[in-house]
Amino acid sequence: MDRRLVLVHLYPDLLNLYGDRGNVLALSRRASWAGWTLEVREVGMGEAADLAEADMLFVGGGQDREQKTLAQDLLRRRDAILRGVDRGLVVLAVCGGYQLMGRRYVTPEGEEVPGIGLMDLETLPGPGRLVGNVVVAAGWLEEPLVGFENHGGRTFLGPSAQALGQVVRGHGNNGRDGTEGAWAGKVYGTYLHGALLPKNPAFADHLLRQAAARRRGEVPWPKLDDLEEHAARAVLMERMGLRGQR
Protein backbone atom coordinates (compact mmCIF):
# COMPACT_ATOMS: atom_id res chain seq x y z
CA MET A 1 0.00 0.00 0.00
CA ASP A 2 1.54 3.26 -1.10
CA ARG A 3 1.38 5.79 1.69
CA ARG A 4 3.86 8.21 0.25
CA LEU A 5 3.34 11.89 -0.50
CA VAL A 6 5.66 14.29 -2.28
CA LEU A 7 5.96 17.93 -1.27
CA VAL A 8 7.86 20.51 -3.29
CA HIS A 9 9.22 23.33 -1.14
CA LEU A 10 10.01 26.30 -3.34
CA TYR A 11 12.92 28.63 -2.51
CA PRO A 12 13.79 27.27 0.94
CA ASP A 13 17.11 29.12 0.74
CA LEU A 14 15.51 32.46 -0.01
CA LEU A 15 12.11 32.37 1.61
CA ASN A 16 13.11 31.18 5.03
CA LEU A 17 11.83 34.16 6.89
CA TYR A 18 9.38 33.82 9.76
CA GLY A 19 10.05 30.17 10.44
CA ASP A 20 8.58 28.80 7.21
CA ARG A 21 10.64 25.70 7.87
CA GLY A 22 8.14 24.97 10.64
CA ASN A 23 5.33 24.52 8.12
CA VAL A 24 7.22 21.89 6.18
CA LEU A 25 8.35 20.23 9.39
CA ALA A 26 4.76 20.09 10.67
CA LEU A 27 3.50 18.49 7.46
CA SER A 28 6.23 15.89 7.42
CA ARG A 29 5.95 14.98 11.13
CA ARG A 30 2.17 14.84 11.11
CA ALA A 31 2.20 12.73 7.96
CA SER A 32 4.50 10.23 9.62
CA TRP A 33 2.46 10.20 12.85
CA ALA A 34 -0.54 9.34 10.67
CA GLY A 35 1.34 6.50 9.03
CA TRP A 36 2.34 8.28 5.82
CA THR A 37 5.71 9.34 4.47
CA LEU A 38 6.17 12.87 3.19
CA GLU A 39 9.08 13.25 0.88
CA VAL A 40 10.27 16.87 0.81
CA ARG A 41 11.99 18.14 -2.32
CA GLU A 42 13.63 21.52 -1.92
CA VAL A 43 13.75 23.53 -5.11
CA GLY A 44 15.76 26.74 -5.36
CA MET A 45 15.69 29.56 -7.88
CA GLY A 46 16.20 28.36 -11.43
CA GLU A 47 16.26 24.70 -10.39
CA ALA A 48 14.06 22.15 -12.12
CA ALA A 49 11.01 20.89 -10.22
CA ASP A 50 8.88 17.95 -11.24
CA LEU A 51 5.48 19.23 -10.24
CA ALA A 52 3.68 16.46 -12.14
CA GLU A 53 4.77 14.03 -9.46
CA ALA A 54 4.13 16.35 -6.52
CA ASP A 55 1.11 16.18 -4.22
CA MET A 56 1.83 19.39 -2.36
CA LEU A 57 3.54 22.67 -3.10
CA PHE A 58 4.71 25.09 -0.40
CA VAL A 59 5.89 28.65 -1.03
CA GLY A 60 6.96 30.75 1.94
CA GLY A 61 7.53 34.42 2.58
CA GLY A 62 10.65 36.49 2.09
CA GLN A 63 11.74 40.07 2.45
CA ASP A 64 10.16 42.70 0.25
CA ARG A 65 13.29 43.25 -1.79
CA GLU A 66 13.29 39.62 -2.89
CA GLN A 67 9.79 39.68 -4.32
CA LYS A 68 10.81 40.76 -7.82
CA THR A 69 13.49 38.11 -8.30
CA LEU A 70 11.05 35.53 -7.06
CA ALA A 71 8.21 36.63 -9.25
CA GLN A 72 10.35 36.10 -12.36
CA ASP A 73 11.24 32.57 -11.34
CA LEU A 74 7.67 31.80 -10.34
CA LEU A 75 6.30 33.07 -13.66
CA ARG A 76 8.53 30.61 -15.49
CA ARG A 77 6.90 27.82 -13.47
CA ARG A 78 3.38 29.11 -13.97
CA ASP A 79 2.20 26.57 -16.53
CA ALA A 80 3.65 23.66 -14.58
CA ILE A 81 1.89 24.86 -11.43
CA LEU A 82 -1.42 25.32 -13.26
CA ARG A 83 -1.17 21.82 -14.74
CA GLY A 84 -0.40 20.47 -11.28
CA VAL A 85 -3.39 22.23 -9.75
CA ASP A 86 -5.61 20.72 -12.46
CA ARG A 87 -4.42 17.33 -11.31
CA GLY A 88 -5.18 18.00 -7.66
CA LEU A 89 -1.91 19.55 -6.44
CA VAL A 90 -2.44 21.05 -2.96
CA VAL A 91 -0.80 24.49 -2.74
CA LEU A 92 -0.02 26.48 0.40
CA ALA A 93 1.51 29.93 -0.04
CA VAL A 94 2.40 32.17 2.91
CA CYS A 95 3.16 35.93 3.06
CA GLY A 96 5.29 36.87 0.06
CA GLY A 97 4.43 33.60 -1.64
CA TYR A 98 0.72 34.29 -1.13
CA GLN A 99 1.00 37.75 -2.69
CA LEU A 100 2.62 36.29 -5.81
CA MET A 101 -0.24 33.77 -6.25
CA GLY A 102 -2.41 36.75 -7.17
CA ARG A 103 -2.62 38.79 -10.34
CA ARG A 104 -0.19 41.50 -9.37
CA TYR A 105 1.89 42.92 -6.55
CA VAL A 106 2.69 46.63 -6.44
CA THR A 107 5.87 47.52 -4.52
CA PRO A 108 6.03 50.43 -2.06
CA GLU A 109 7.95 52.27 -4.80
CA GLY A 110 5.00 51.86 -7.15
CA GLU A 111 6.58 49.23 -9.34
CA GLU A 112 4.23 46.56 -10.64
CA VAL A 113 5.30 42.94 -10.23
CA PRO A 114 3.11 40.40 -12.05
CA GLY A 115 1.91 37.39 -10.04
CA ILE A 116 1.03 34.00 -11.47
CA GLY A 117 -2.71 34.58 -11.24
CA LEU A 118 -3.60 31.36 -9.49
CA MET A 119 -6.09 33.31 -7.38
CA ASP A 120 -8.20 36.37 -8.12
CA LEU A 121 -6.44 38.89 -5.90
CA GLU A 122 -4.00 41.77 -5.98
CA THR A 123 -1.65 43.35 -3.47
CA LEU A 124 -1.08 47.09 -3.13
CA PRO A 125 1.24 49.06 -0.88
CA GLY A 126 -0.14 50.73 2.24
CA PRO A 127 1.07 52.97 5.03
CA GLY A 128 3.15 51.14 7.66
CA ARG A 129 3.09 47.46 8.32
CA LEU A 130 0.30 45.27 9.69
CA VAL A 131 1.93 43.42 12.56
CA GLY A 132 0.66 41.28 15.42
CA ASN A 133 -1.12 38.18 16.59
CA VAL A 134 -4.14 37.11 14.55
CA VAL A 135 -7.17 34.91 15.13
CA VAL A 136 -9.24 33.96 12.08
CA ALA A 137 -12.62 32.24 12.15
CA ALA A 138 -12.61 29.59 9.45
CA GLY A 139 -15.97 27.83 9.43
CA TRP A 140 -14.70 24.95 7.29
CA LEU A 141 -12.20 23.99 10.01
CA GLU A 142 -13.09 22.73 13.47
CA GLU A 143 -11.00 25.44 15.11
CA PRO A 144 -10.05 29.03 14.29
CA LEU A 145 -6.68 29.74 12.69
CA VAL A 146 -4.14 31.46 14.92
CA GLY A 147 -0.83 33.01 13.95
CA PHE A 148 1.25 36.14 13.57
CA GLU A 149 1.18 38.56 10.67
CA ASN A 150 3.79 41.04 9.48
CA HIS A 151 3.20 42.55 6.06
CA GLY A 152 3.38 45.91 4.32
CA GLY A 153 1.28 44.89 1.31
CA ARG A 154 -2.53 45.07 1.41
CA THR A 155 -4.25 42.25 -0.41
CA PHE A 156 -7.69 42.68 -1.97
CA LEU A 157 -9.76 39.77 -3.19
CA GLY A 158 -11.49 39.85 -6.57
CA PRO A 159 -15.07 38.62 -7.11
CA SER A 160 -14.04 35.05 -7.85
CA ALA A 161 -11.74 34.69 -4.83
CA GLN A 162 -12.88 33.38 -1.49
CA ALA A 163 -11.39 34.38 1.87
CA LEU A 164 -9.80 31.69 4.02
CA GLY A 165 -11.73 33.15 6.92
CA GLN A 166 -12.88 36.23 8.79
CA VAL A 167 -10.57 38.15 11.09
CA VAL A 168 -11.57 37.92 14.77
CA ARG A 169 -8.41 39.64 16.08
CA GLY A 170 -5.69 41.30 14.03
CA HIS A 171 -5.60 42.87 10.56
CA GLY A 172 -5.79 40.14 7.91
CA ASN A 173 -5.58 40.78 4.17
CA ASN A 174 -5.76 44.56 4.27
CA GLY A 175 -6.90 45.67 7.71
CA ARG A 176 -10.16 46.94 6.25
CA ASP A 177 -12.58 44.34 4.94
CA GLY A 178 -12.15 41.76 7.70
CA THR A 179 -10.97 39.00 5.40
CA GLU A 180 -7.84 36.94 5.79
CA GLY A 181 -6.17 34.78 3.17
CA ALA A 182 -7.78 33.21 0.16
CA TRP A 183 -8.55 29.81 -1.27
CA ALA A 184 -9.58 28.43 -4.61
CA GLY A 185 -10.02 24.67 -4.91
CA LYS A 186 -6.95 23.20 -3.27
CA VAL A 187 -4.91 26.39 -3.42
CA TYR A 188 -4.53 28.21 -0.10
CA GLY A 189 -2.87 31.54 0.61
CA THR A 190 -2.46 33.34 3.93
CA TYR A 191 -0.49 35.99 5.77
CA LEU A 192 -0.32 33.86 8.91
CA HIS A 193 2.95 32.49 10.15
CA GLY A 194 3.99 31.76 13.69
CA ALA A 195 4.69 29.08 12.43
CA LEU A 196 1.25 28.51 10.87
CA LEU A 197 0.88 24.74 10.58
CA PRO A 198 2.43 23.54 13.86
CA LYS A 199 -0.01 25.79 15.70
CA ASN A 200 -2.98 24.95 13.50
CA PRO A 201 -2.91 21.17 13.44
CA ALA A 202 -6.45 20.95 12.02
CA PHE A 203 -5.36 22.96 8.98
CA ALA A 204 -2.20 20.88 8.57
CA ASP A 205 -4.23 17.67 8.65
CA HIS A 206 -6.78 19.15 6.24
CA LEU A 207 -4.01 19.79 3.70
CA LEU A 208 -2.48 16.35 4.19
CA ARG A 209 -5.85 14.63 3.85
CA GLN A 210 -6.47 16.41 0.55
CA ALA A 211 -3.03 15.42 -0.70
CA ALA A 212 -3.64 11.83 0.38
CA ALA A 213 -7.00 11.84 -1.39
CA ARG A 214 -5.22 12.75 -4.62
CA ARG A 215 -3.31 9.48 -4.36
CA ARG A 216 -5.85 7.11 -2.91
CA GLY A 217 -9.25 8.73 -2.81
CA GLU A 218 -10.91 9.61 0.50
CA VAL A 219 -8.90 8.10 3.33
CA PRO A 220 -9.51 8.11 7.06
CA TRP A 221 -7.12 10.41 8.88
CA PRO A 222 -6.31 9.61 12.51
CA LYS A 223 -6.88 12.11 15.28
CA LEU A 224 -3.45 12.90 16.73
CA ASP A 225 -2.47 13.86 20.27
CA ASP A 226 -2.18 17.66 20.12
CA LEU A 227 -1.74 18.53 23.80
CA GLU A 228 1.19 20.92 23.26
CA GLU A 229 -0.42 22.53 20.23
CA HIS A 230 -3.61 23.22 22.15
CA ALA A 231 -1.68 24.66 25.09
CA ALA A 232 0.08 27.08 22.74
CA ARG A 233 -3.24 28.05 21.15
CA ALA A 234 -5.03 28.46 24.47
CA VAL A 235 -2.53 31.06 25.71
CA LEU A 236 -2.99 33.11 22.59
CA MET A 237 -6.78 32.85 22.64
CA GLU A 238 -6.97 33.81 26.27
CA ARG A 239 -4.73 36.78 25.72
CA MET A 240 -6.94 37.94 22.87
CA GLY A 241 -9.97 37.77 25.15
CA LEU A 242 -11.28 34.59 23.54
CA ARG A 243 -11.05 32.33 26.55
CA GLY A 244 -12.72 28.96 26.33
CA GLN A 245 -12.66 28.88 22.55
CA ARG A 246 -10.36 26.34 21.03
Binding site: N16, Y18, G19, D20, R21, G22, L25, V131, G132, N133, F148, N150, H193, G194, A195, P198
Partner: peptide, 9 residues
Protein backbone atom coordinates in the same frame (compact mmCIF):
# COMPACT_ATOMS: atom_id res chain seq x y z
CA UNK B 1 10.22 39.83 19.98
CA UNK B 2 6.44 39.47 19.93
CA UNK B 3 6.61 37.07 16.98
CA UNK B 4 7.75 33.69 18.28
CA UNK B 5 8.12 32.11 14.83
CA UNK B 6 11.89 32.67 14.90
CA UNK B 7 12.08 29.50 17.00
CA UNK B 8 11.47 27.50 13.85
CA UNK B 9 14.71 28.81 12.38
Amino acid sequence: GTDVSWLWD
